[in-house]
């Protein structure tokens, strides 16, 4: 009972706000200020969602987009941790890599798409490459910062226990950099979802982004909004999942801050 009322108190305002928003949307659509061809009522968008869920097309598209997003994000995270770790822990690596990276970082990932298409064609691997390129920066910078933070005390401990460089990385540096890496990874994940949708639209790859694009082109506005709702739900769930993972992995930080 108390848990229920606590949940109600905590999430009540947010639920109320969403309800009010949907109500306003429905009201505006019912007034038909804008033609329903461009602006469907939420009831129609949810009907469309339910329909595509029942015939399975929603799940196929959503899964394709999720796979693309996660694949690109994992690639970005792995590369970001390795490169960021190198920059953060080695002066030499930083001197070699940093200027180039600083040049590449401001490039919009969408501007990379034509280049990626030239090299990889209109393929899933092209999408992965673009997503990884665009999503790498937050993890990379987080890792670079996390690894660069000086930890002389821990270095002494590692030396006193005769740990070599590999064990220093694995047992000391990486876990110490974890908070910075994870906060970067969460931003990267949001970017990965954006780029998954963009590449689908640009390269006609199957997924929610392509569905939305096609719905817009053929004036099927209810379908378009259904796709947007699905994307929002995916982003929400994935972000929460990662936040929960972060809280678990970083539970040691809670008492201090």
């Amino acid at each position: 009972m108390t848990a229920l009322s606590r949940a109600a108190r905590r999430h009540g305002p947010a639920v109320l706000f969403v309800a009010a928003l949907l109500g306003a949307w429905q009201g505006l659509a019912d007034l038909q200020v804008i033609s329903p061809v461009f602006f469907p009522a939420p009831s129609r968008a949810f009907e469309e969602l339910a329909f595509s869920a029942s015939d399975g097309s929603l799940w196929t598209s959503a899964w394709a987009t999720i796979k693309r997003m996660l694949g690109g994000w994992l690639l970005a995270s792995a590369a970001g941790i390795v490169i960021g770790g190198a920059i953060g822990s080695s002066r030499t690596a930083r001197d070699y890599l940093e200027p180039t990276l600083e040049f590449m970082r401001p490039l919009p990932a969408s501007a990379i798409i034509p280049v990626a298409i030239l090299f990889l064609g209109l393929s899933g691997s092209m999408a992965l490459a673009v997503i990884a390129f665009g999503a790498i920066w937050p993890v990379l910078l987080g890792a670079a910062h996390g690894f660069a933070t000086s930890r002389r005390g821990l270095r002494d401990v590692a030396a006193a226990l005769e740990f070599g460089p590999v064990q220093w990385m694995w047992k000391f540096s990486l876990p110490a950099a974890m908070p910075d890496i994870l906060s970067g990874a969460r931003i990267s994940l949001a970017i990965a979802l954006i780029l998954a949708v963009v590449t689908e639209m640009q390269a006609s790859l199957p997924g929610l982004g392509y569905d939305i694009f096609m719905a817009q082109r053929s004036f099927r506005s209810a379908e378009l909004y259904a796709g947007l709702i699905a994307l929002g739900v995916i982003g929400f769930i994935v972000n929460h999942g990662l936040a929960m993972f972060e809280r678990r992995v970083l539970s040691w930080r809670e008492p201090q801050s």
């Binding site: 005390g153 821990l154 002494d156 006193a160 047992k171 000391f172 110490a176 040691w252 201090q256």
Partner: peptide
């Protein structure tokens, strides 16, 4: 060397907080 243990004054930086 492991045969010479060191107890550091600053325990907050000598223990692995995670």
């Amino acid at each position: 060397s492991l045969s010479r243990a060191i107890v550091f004054q600053d325990y907050t930086n000598a223990l692995l907080p995670w």
